[in-house]
Nucleic acid binder design. Structure first.
Lengths: 185, 185
DNA sequence: CGTTTTTGTACATTATAACATACATGGAAA
DNA sequence: TTTCCATGTATGTTATAATGTACAAAAACG
């Protein structure tokens, strides 16, 4: 995932070069020193919100045009490129496929739990829902003092703003797809 | 016009209190110290873009929901509340009615020029257009070595990314409405 | 070509964002 | 009450954003 200040860097530089403005000219228009403009463009600085505001106003462009980088229409994500999150002595693995970003209201994970493996999750922010589909194995989910056992092909949806646990209660590796959903307030 | 970091302050505090989260909890969710969260909420700090990004992601809300404060449906602007911009020894006055803001692509001024008054304008950013309607008096506008004389009821539209001048060529006070328009790229 | 000007970067300094720690205040529990 | 715990604020320190000046390379000019 690209860092926000690098996105800003690209957008600002692209805009400036497109308009054929010098650093000095931008400094004059925005009231931000040309040194700082240069550092921002090179990704060497994470400007404060007031600085970004000065730039957006001085250049007469929107705040978001500086921080939104156009998503490609198609995005391929290979497992080998995914950073794995493991714990319980490596007995489960979480693969973040599509992490949260700005205005998307959900994120997508895949979770593998070895036989006997156990996963305890802290409550997510209020309102969060979890949608799970089991692909392989058997999983027992405990939430709100209720226990649900799911097998391959089963699914469940629950409010995830309370503590909850996952347990591989079957005889083989369990694999599930998990969607975390954050409803708009 | 409200300062950007105060808008952020309000939005963040409103969100946190609405969700009934403590500063400490927000700090834990976002990876930003609770001291900093507190200072941001009190408007005592202009956070960097990376800090805002951490907050938006940790709270699972969009970047813009933190910086956009909802415009009221109706906005009344009285002349007495407008900050006047004068020069040429006070022989002209510029009244900024609706200044540029974020995603609006234009701003609105009224300009008064006394008899004989003269106004020289630096080029605006590339692509900028000016739309002028004359209400009273006579004005001569010079742009690109061309000269246009307008009387009450006349109007003109021109590319304002080159130097241009306004001159009250009539016998009385001249008043015009001016719109500066910044086309999207 | 050499000279001048324009443009972006390096450097040194100041202002302030960000953090860790300690403190004060206001309930809840006893 | 008294004690305890939770929450937000004040304080001191470090990291870094922001600026002004000086410099180097490239472009424009003769």
């Amino acid at each position: 995932m690209e860092e926000i200040h690098l996105i800003l860097a690209k957008n600002l530089k692209a805009f400036r070069e497109n308009k054929k403005l010098s650093l000095e000219k931008v400094a004059e228009l925005t009231g931000v020193s040309k040194t700082m403009i240069g550092q921002i463009e090179r990704g060497e600085s994470s400007p404060t919100i007031t600085t970004i505001w000065k730039i957006a106003n001085g250049l007469k462009i929107s705040f978001t045009s500086l921080i939104n980088h156009p998503q490609p229409d198609t995005q391929l994500v290979l497992r080998k490129d995914i950073q794995t999150l493991s714990e319980d002595h490596g007995r489960y693995r979480v693969y973040p496929y599509f992490p949260f970003e700005n205005d998307k209201r959900f994120e997508v994970y895949t979770v593998e739990i070895d036989k006997g493996g156990y996963l305890s999750a802290e409550p997510h922010i209020e309102g969060t829902e979890e949608l799970i589909v089991v692909f392989d194995g058997e999983i027992t989910i405990r939430v709100n003092n209720d226990e649900y056992t799911l097998e391959s092909g089963d699914s469940i949806r629950f409010k995830a703003d309370k503590p909850h646990t996952y347990h591989n209660s079957g005889k083989s590796l369990a694999r599930v797809n998990m969607i975390l959903f954050y409803p708009a307030e």
